[in-house]
Amino acid sequence: MNTRYCFALDLVNDPTLIAEYEAYHRAVWPEILKSITDAGIIDMEIYRFGNRLFMIMDTDETFSFERKAAMDAGNTRVDDWEAQMWKYQQAIPGTKPGEKWVLMNRIFKL
């Protein structure tokens, strides 16, 4: 059974930085794509409005946040990507220090 997760994150509100962030996401490093799919993520989409991002992530039965974190822990390319992306990202108000993508709660489904 597949599971869907939705997340929010803000970008630094600077048009140049937002354009750079979007450029990175038009050419995501192959190692990052592999780390995503190897973790059991079968589809991922990111949407933007202004500096607010919304990510939809569909996973298979092998996915868990703990497993993904363990897989990423020894991956220097993932570390490099995350460090680069943090230049463009900023936490949403109310998040914990260092927290990036925040899991959203579904409040409606048709």
Rank of each mutant, 00 (worst) to 15 (best):
residue 51 N to H: 15
residue 31 E to M: 01
residue 19 A to C: 09
residue 70 A to R: 12
residue 26 R to D: 14
residue 37 T to A: 06
residue 56 I to G: 02
residue 47 Y to C: 00
residue 27 A to V: 11
residue 53 L to Q: 07
residue 56 I to L: 15
residue 33 L to C: 14
residue 72 D to K: 14
residue 65 F to C: 11
residue 63 F to I: 10
residue 33 L to H: 11
residue 31 E to Q: 15
residue 57 M to P: 10
residue 11 L to R: 02
residue 12 V to K: 08
residue 53 L to K: 08
residue 51 N to G: 13
residue 57 M to G: 05
residue 50 G to H: 13
residue 75 N to Q: 10
residue 31 E to Y: 01
residue 67 R to V: 03
residue 43 D to I: 00
residue 75 N to P: 02
residue 25 H to V: 08
residue 42 I to H: 02
residue 61 E to Y: 04
residue 20 E to Y: 00
residue 23 A to M: 06
residue 46 I to T: 15
residue 53 L to T: 06
residue 16 T to S: 03
residue 26 R to Q: 12
residue 30 P to F: 04
residue 69 A to K: 01
residue 57 M to A: 11
residue 63 F to R: 00
residue 16 T to W: 00
residue 53 L to W: 13
residue 35 S to M: 07
residue 12 V to P: 00
residue 67 R to Q: 10
residue 71 M to Q: 15
residue 20 E to T: 05
residue 59 T to R: 03
residue 20 E to S: 06
residue 35 S to Q: 00
residue 29 W to M: 07
residue 75 N to C: 13
residue 12 V to H: 03
residue 27 A to Y: 01
residue 52 R to E: 15
residue 54 F to H: 07
residue 38 D to Y: 05
residue 40 G to T: 09
residue 9 L to N: 15
residue 13 N to P: 03
residue 41 I to V: 14
residue 15 P to I: 03
residue 72 D to G: 05
residue 21 Y to V: 09
residue 68 K to V: 03
residue 43 D to R: 14
residue 20 E to Q: 09
residue 47 Y to V: 02
residue 15 P to K: 08
residue 52 R to T: 14
residue 75 N to L: 04
residue 36 I to P: 03
residue 21 Y to E: 12
residue 49 F to E: 11
residue 18 I to K: 09
residue 41 I to M: 08
residue 68 K to T: 03
residue 73 A to D: 02
residue 32 I to E: 09
residue 70 A to N: 11
residue 11 L to A: 11
residue 8 A to N: 11
